[in-house]
Amino acid sequence: MKNKRGKQILVYIVACIFLVFTAYPFIYMISTSLKTMDDFFANPFRMIPGEFTLDHYFSVFEMGLAQYFLNSVMITVAAVFIVVIIASLASYPLSRMSFRLNRPLFLFFIAGMMLPIHATLIPIFVLSQDLGIYDTLLALLGPYVAFSLPISIFILTQFMQDIPKELEEAAVIDGANHFATFRRVIFPVIKPAVSTVVIYNFVFLWTEFIFALILITSPSQMTLPLGLQNFYGEFSINIPGLMAALTLASLPVILMFLFAQERVVKGLTGGALKG
């Protein structure tokens, strides 16, 4: 009994060590963002600010963060929307029809998960210049959709395989064509998988950096990760300001997590859990 109690205490101690390890940087970030400059330079490590201020949040918003935020929202929403549609369309025959190229095509798509993005950078850079979309948000759309496809198709096909085939047979008997069957019968059923796909890709694209780095140079077109890096170059002295920007940039994903924990965990670990 005594031994058990000791073990219990040990678990708490280890848990608290990990807690400090994972949470302290967040506490530092948030508390610094709420300090005045004077307060920060006088007591850089005090966890509770001497006087609270939200000034940094307003000033980083005015300094361009609002624009980056808006750009990130636009490109992320557009890319996720397109991915959901074209990935679920492709997953339908891949998971429910038998045809000769089925398996090769499926492997061809999901092989993209293993790919180092660097192997595509220079041609995509050249392509976006040739298309005249270099240095616009539009340049990101193609690569963002393309690199979201493999995991999305993987998640969606896994899910669609388990739908009983009687479901669509009934629709086919009713004389619906394949597209109508897909839209009215299959799509409503795969909603849980779609939400996994949405969450995974939202997080992946919201935090994407390297394509933005090589395809965008104008601040007016920058997404949040690129904008933050730009901020750092300009305001490296204004540490509370930078911390406010970091907090704001991280907020959407963290809020999403707090409101839909299980879904997000499922979404972020993607196909890994099935394998």
């Binding site: 807690l19 994972t22 950096f209 970091l246 963290i254 707090l258």
Partner: peptide, 13 residues
Amino acid sequence: VMFFLPYLMSTVA
């Protein structure tokens, strides 16, 4: 929740 926080931030941040 606390253990999972770091994974939710963007790498740049």
